[in-house]
Design a protein around this nucleic acid. Sequence first.
DNA 1: TCAAAATTTGAAATCGCTTTGAATGGCTTT
DNA 2: AAAGCCATTCAAAGCGATTTCAAATTTTGA
Lengths: 345, 345
Amino acid sequence: MGRNAAMRLKDLAEHLGLSQTTVSRALNGYPEVNEATRRRVAEAANLLGYRPNASALRLATGRAGAVGLVLRGADELGPHMSEFLSGVGSYMASQEIDMLVSTVASHQEELAAYRRLAASQKVDAVILHSPTISDERAELLMELKIPFVLHGRTNIGHPVAWLDIDNTSALERATSHLLDLGHRRIALLNGVKGRTFAQHREIGYRAALTARGLSVDPALVGNSAFTDEIAFRMAQAMLEQRPRPTAFLAGSMMTALGVFRAIRQAGLQLGSDVSMIAHDDVFPYLNADNMYPTMSTTRSSIRQAGTRIAELIMQILAGKPLAEVHELWPVELVLRESSGPAPKS
Amino acid sequence: MGRNAAMRLKDLAEHLGLSQTTVSRALNGYPEVNEATRRRVAEAANLLGYRPNASALRLATGRAGAVGLVLRGADELGPHMSEFLSGVGSYMASQEIDMLVSTVASHQEELAAYRRLAASQKVDAVILHSPTISDERAELLMELKIPFVLHGRTNIGHPVAWLDIDNTSALERATSHLLDLGHRRIALLNGVKGRTFAQHREIGYRAALTARGLSVDPALVGNSAFTDEIAFRMAQAMLEQRPRPTAFLAGSMMTALGVFRAIRQAGLQLGSDVSMIAHDDVFPYLNADNMYPTMSTTRSSIRQAGTRIAELIMQILAGKPLAEVHELWPVELVLRESSGPAPKS
DNA sequence: TCAAAATTTGAAATCGCTTTGAATGGCTTT
DNA sequence: AAAGCCATTCAAAGCGATTTCAAATTTTGA
């Protein structure tokens, strides 16, 4: 039983022969404390490794000193999320704010989790991820009066703070580029239906096609989670069509890997027989530039987005009006070997 | 400014015309409260959505109700960690324990982070990941008297609670299998040097080789982080050797993807010209069984390990002696198409 | 030189909960 | 009818910080 008898403010005060009040003030930088005293206190605190008890501090100040992230287990806690988390974390650490991560299994559980967070006042704010077009969670958070920043966009009655990437423009440009290369049957492996980003991407895709007077073939549009496996199956099925698609727009690097396998298995060559442009969230362990062939991508660092969202959270907690917190990030289009001219038919 | 005026115990008590004491007891299942009263209280609490203020509860009980995970940013917060986290989270959620995730940039920062956690008493325990052979962090936690469970093993003075997979046996069997297939030049793409698991794997690899009177060629052993890119480069370099390796042992699925690319780029065929067995931590979005060719693996679910470790943490907090908390999990060897007979030289 | 103002310090209230020790009232028991 | 028990309930004391309000000390100004 390792009863941790950490040093308390009282102990420190006694040790210094001062009152708790003065010590507390000295440590928190209040002006009304003698400079010499402040130094003495700071030194002793440092030496004795004093840090205020988090629970007591939170109770006294009413601030939780933490932001919450509720993740739908297997679904959401994938490679995207870990990059994102890592971005959020890098900023939060510098601000001495904790990240409270909880996982849930279903949508209902997720809503319940937010209610719990609100009632028990465990967090000052939360980060909401992968919203749907009209996101129920966002509405609930609004109702619960928990401040939050949305990674993505949604359409609810109230103004909401958000940061998103310009998915529509990204797909519009990627699709146009493939069209310029002569491709006419272009498949879109999009994210789960209902998510705002998936809708935005489809809008960009359609815009590029209709701009050339082409119509969308529903058989060439797939919606699913971004896993290697599902992408493989969908691409495989699409490649069996005649005429077959000559290009793929892959929603993520995981998707790209699956498509890549399907292409190879069909005995085709990526970059000549079939082209592909994938969306790259920039994973340190999966580099588009080092693939073979190198992968053309629409690129935007999800980690940087995480860091920025953390900053936005702090601004909101500092009182910045929600309506002023909107950021739409541009997406780079990086052309490499996987996208080439359409084959002669 | 959404001042969240959550319901307090006092409010609930007044609402019921009872004292805080009784209400608190009723909710916490103490025996000395009238059954009718208890029901009445529970009902009201439920109806009004009362939940104790977390900070107050923690301050009063001295329990933080949270476990900590400190992750070295980019390094550790990869796909392995997110799977692991998700496993831990699924159990913690059921126990109403929070996961406090923080990220740090360096080893020094990590140690500092643990000191902070200890001093501010934010967590009841921590989970330690990817230990080195003699892990300084484990020693520090011991000293700080923060209970912890190690995912992996280490060698320090004190007994430590741990859960690990049997890496040595896994590699010994995988290597032996490749030897049985006639391979003689078998490359090992291992994890970062200094980590216990990498050492254990090398021991298994060496054991299998020496059992057949073969010696280890240092040029065929690589140590690095498990990224697609680094693996690609290492494999590429190894494949330029003559005689070239005919088989690879890949430390992770990311590594396997890199090796796979190197093999293809060299104009070779996986499963015939070159074989590979990869370690599979079981990612839902990257399925060895659906690769092309399907990938032979040593397999162990890192997510399940996370869940189990969460359980072990709770046991330790309940007072189970550290020396009794040791689990060594076996690793499956799953043979698929990527491992075939050695080519005739 | 002495009152007034400024600087520094401290005692005690507060945050919302748990928990100790005491009180209340109804039933047995003698 | 008094004493002793149970079963319930409550008032008040923590937990470890911040913060209000008051007190003590030093400086200043006339």
